[in-house]
Amino acid sequence: MTSPTIVLVHGAWADASSWNAVITGLEERGFTALAPPNLLRGVASDAAYIASFLRQRTTGPVVLVGHSYGGFVITNAATGGGDVRALVYIDAFIPDEGEFVFQILGGSGSALAVPDPTTVLDIVGYPGAPEGDAEAFLKPSTVHESFAQDLEEEDRDLVVATQRPITLSANTAPSAAPAWKSIPSWAVVGTQDLVIPPATQRSMAERAGATITEVEASHVSMVSHPDVAIDAILAAAASV
């Protein structure tokens, strides 16, 4: 029986290196793991890119994994390319059709759902931006206090220095029909997550019928507690 390929999609303010420890653990167990770039420009285009990657870079069954905003992307990409058999959400959005990031976070208690976003984000223009759009970076204080508070200080400093911004428009773009309605899913909920509060994560995961694991960790639990993410992925792979 062919082992599935594990494809890992990072979220906002991160890159594929956020999966390094998970990739190492999966490869030690004999799996092929791939971590393509997430363009962070908008759900439709980001999902189209990942679906294209799946079609061209994988053969056989796939377990598709998303962190944070990467959950939006895998929800929209999984039925568009490749043979995706399972979805795994790590501290992630698990949207239903029509939902968008700011809507889900509104009223959730998220550290990002504040009256003045410029208190937690640095908003900057970018070349070729549609009118009114801009990129959002996390302020250093947001990384240290709310995004990756359970990492060592030097690792938090690296997040600050290497973060990839997401466009504001990506946070207001609605999700299409969700793949979790036809593909089984697993979810890891970080109980110390201040970006997507655990109650919000649980609600989305339960709605999707996901098998849920909890970990006492921040929004980047796959960095601080990679074994928990690995175990959820292995459970999903065993179902394929």
Rank of each mutant, 00 (worst) to 15 (best):
S169Y: 08
V114M: 10
R57M: 11
E131R: 13
A237W: 02
D96R: 12
P36G: 06
E135C: 01
R29M: 00
W180D: 02
L54N: 11
H219A: 08
G82C: 09
A148M: 10
G109L: 06
I90G: 03
V195H: 05
W19G: 10
T79Y: 01
V120D: 07
V73N: 01
T59F: 00
R207L: 14
A113E: 07
G190R: 00
A136T: 13
D231M: 08
N76V: 04
A210N: 02
A161P: 02
P61Y: 00
A235E: 11
G106T: 13
S18F: 01
A187E: 07
L112P: 00
T24Q: 12
F31P: 03
A14S: 13
P61W: 00
L105W: 03
S239A: 14
A78P: 04
A12D: 01
R202S: 00
R55L: 07
L151D: 02
D96S: 15
T211F: 10
A199F: 01
P165L: 06
G106Q: 12
P178H: 08
V143F: 09
V124R: 15
E27S: 11
G190N: 07
T2P: 12
G98N: 04
V143S: 06
P37N: 15
T2D: 13
V65E: 00
V188P: 09
A134N: 06
G109Q: 08
T191Q: 04
H225E: 10
E135M: 13
N20V: 00
V114S: 05
A232R: 06
Y89P: 02
D83A: 15
T118Y: 01
I230L: 13
Q149V: 06
N38D: 09
I123D: 04
G30Q: 10
L64E: 01
E214W: 04
S182T: 15
S175F: 07
M1E: 13
A148N: 10
L112T: 09
L158E: 11
A113Q: 08
P165W: 06
L234F: 01
A208G: 08
D122A: 14
G66L: 09
S182M: 00
N76K: 04
A236E: 07
L39T: 06
G209S: 14
Q192F: 11
P36C: 05
V84I: 05
I183Y: 11
T5I: 08
E216D: 15
I74D: 00
F53P: 05
G30D: 08
T32Q: 08
L194S: 11
H67L: 13
S185H: 09
P117E: 01
G109Y: 02
S146R: 10
R202E: 11
G42Q: 03
A176L: 03
S175I: 02
A237D: 08
M204Q: 13
L39W: 03
V143M: 05
L112H: 04
T59M: 07
E152L: 15
I74L: 12
G80R: 09
T119A: 11
D15E: 14
T24L: 09
G128M: 12
L105M: 11
D133V: 01
V63R: 11
G42P: 00
V63K: 07
A177L: 14
N20I: 00
F137N: 01
W180E: 02
V143A: 04
V228F: 02
L234V: 13
I50F: 05
